[in-house]
Every structure is written in C-alpha cells, then in structure tokens.
Computed example of a mutant assay.
Amino acid sequence: MPAVPNIRTEIKVVGDGIVNDIKVGKPASFQVLKSSGGGGVLSFAFEGPNQVEYVTKKLEDGIVEVTYMVKEAGHYEIKVYYQNIHVPGSPFVVHAIGERPKKEIPPELEEKIKKIKVYGKNLEYGKPLALNKVVIDCSESEIDKNELIVSMASPRRRASIINLEDNKDGTFVLTYKPTDPGMYKLNIEVQENHVPGSPFNVNVRGGSIAEYI
C-alpha cells in the first residue's frame, strides 16, 4: 500500500509578516503555501502583549493569505496549525515596533472617558477557571454598554470568557474567566480609546478549579 503523503510537512509559510519587524497599527501579511490536498483544516493563533486582529483569504493553488495588525509594541508569536498540529517553522516570532496612531478625541468624549472609574479586587488578581468580577463605573460619564469595548490578552494561548452586565445605574459588572494562571492584560476602551488605567495588568494565580468550587 502506498504511503499517505503528510501534507502538514509540505506546508510552507512565507512573507514579510513573519520574517521582518512589523509596525504597530499597520497591516502585515504572510502566505501559507500547499495547504490544500489533505482535507485538513488550517488554524491560527497570535500571542503577545495585546489581542491581534487578522483576516484570511483563500487564493489559487491552495494558498492562504493572512493579514493581521497589532495594537501594541512587543514580541508576538504567530502559530500556524494544520489539524491542530504546528506546521514546519511554527511558531514564528515577530517584533512589533512603534505606537498606534493616535486619533483626535473630541473634547467632550475625552472628558467623559476621564470620568470612568474601574475597580474591584479582581482588577489586580484573578483566579483561573473562576468567575472574576470588576466594576466599570460610567455613572458620571454617560457612557452606555454599547460604547464599551472589553478584551483580555495573555502572552500565552489562554482563553478568557468575558461578559458585561448592565446594572442600569451607570455601572457595569465585567466578568472574566481565564483558563490558566499567568499575567493577563485587561483592555477597556471607548471608541478605541483606553479608559484611565487601561490596559490593566491582572495576575491570575492559583491551581486547579477544585480550589474554587
């Protein structure tokens, strides 16, 4: 019986977006070659100081182009998987330099953002696999739930489930549930402008979920 070709080992990842320094706030891209023919699935993960936005586009001959943009300087790992297994060369390490271009904030919005307060014991310390809560107080700023953008990032591939509950009094309860211990960054923004203190460094520490049940 002829050997089944290992498509994963034939996959190549090329492009400036994995070999050169990239710039914060500027699109970067790379291409995945020979990704078709085995019936498998490509997947991607980005790890670094902040969350990474990316889009994929299928081209001809099994080529997949990935375009991404980072919001913060630092080192990032780009992981490319085929059937949940790293392709040759993955993870790729890139360095982002520069700062995100600052948008002019209308004075009225800037004053509103300055009045937002964030507090709670889980703003500095959290527990893995537990519901950690933080209060976002917008009672003096007239900012509603739809204007708030919250996210959580980690140097490693760790998920964090986030929920935002409206208390109907100008305050909101942000609940996050990280999967593993480690240092996370909690981003709270209004129209892509960080609220005072954001991003917040959150130290998630502890053992298994059994400790918190």
Rank of each mutant, 00 (worst) to 15 (best):
V4Q: 14
T9E: 14
I11Q: 07
K12M: 14
V13E: 07
V14L: 15
V14W: 05
G15A: 13
D16Q: 15
G17T: 02
G17W: 09
G17Q: 03
V19R: 12
N20G: 04
D21R: 08
I22E: 06
I22G: 02
K23W: 09
K23Q: 14
K23I: 10
G25M: 09
K26C: 14
K26G: 10
K26E: 11
A28Q: 07
A28L: 07
A28R: 03
A28M: 11
A28K: 06
S29G: 15
S29C: 12
F30M: 03
F30G: 11
V32T: 15
V32C: 11
S35M: 05
G37V: 03
G37Q: 05
G38E: 02
G39V: 02
A45K: 04
G48F: 08
P49H: 08
T56L: 02
L59S: 01
D61Y: 04
I63D: 06
I63E: 09
E65D: 05
V66P: 05
M69A: 15
G74F: 10
H75D: 14
E77R: 08
E77C: 09
I78G: 01
I78A: 02
K79V: 01
K79F: 00
Y82L: 03
Y82P: 00
Y82K: 06
N84I: 00
V87C: 08
P88T: 00
V93D: 04
H95S: 11
A96N: 03
I97R: 12
G98C: 10
G98M: 10
E99L: 14
E99R: 12
P101W: 04
K102S: 15
K103F: 06
I105N: 10
P107L: 03
E108Q: 14
E108R: 12
L109W: 07
K112V: 01
I113W: 01
I113G: 06
K114F: 05
K114E: 10
I116F: 01
V118C: 11
G120E: 02
N122Q: 05
L123T: 03
E124F: 07
G126M: 05
L129A: 13
A130L: 12
L131H: 11
D137F: 13
S139H: 11
E142H: 14
E142D: 15
E142G: 08
I143A: 09
K145A: 10
K145D: 04
L148A: 04
V150F: 00
M152T: 06
M152Y: 01
S154C: 15
S154L: 00
S154N: 13
P155E: 07
R157Q: 14
R157I: 06
I162Q: 11
K168E: 11
K168R: 15
G170D: 06
G170L: 02
F172C: 11
F172R: 05
T179A: 13
P181M: 14
P181S: 13
M183R: 13
M183F: 11
L186I: 04
L186P: 00
I188K: 05
E189S: 13
Q191R: 11
Q191S: 10
E192I: 02
H194W: 12
P196W: 08
G197C: 09
S198K: 01
P199V: 02
F200S: 09
V202H: 01
N203G: 09
N203W: 06
G206I: 12
S208R: 06
I209D: 02
I209K: 12
E211T: 01
Y212A: 00
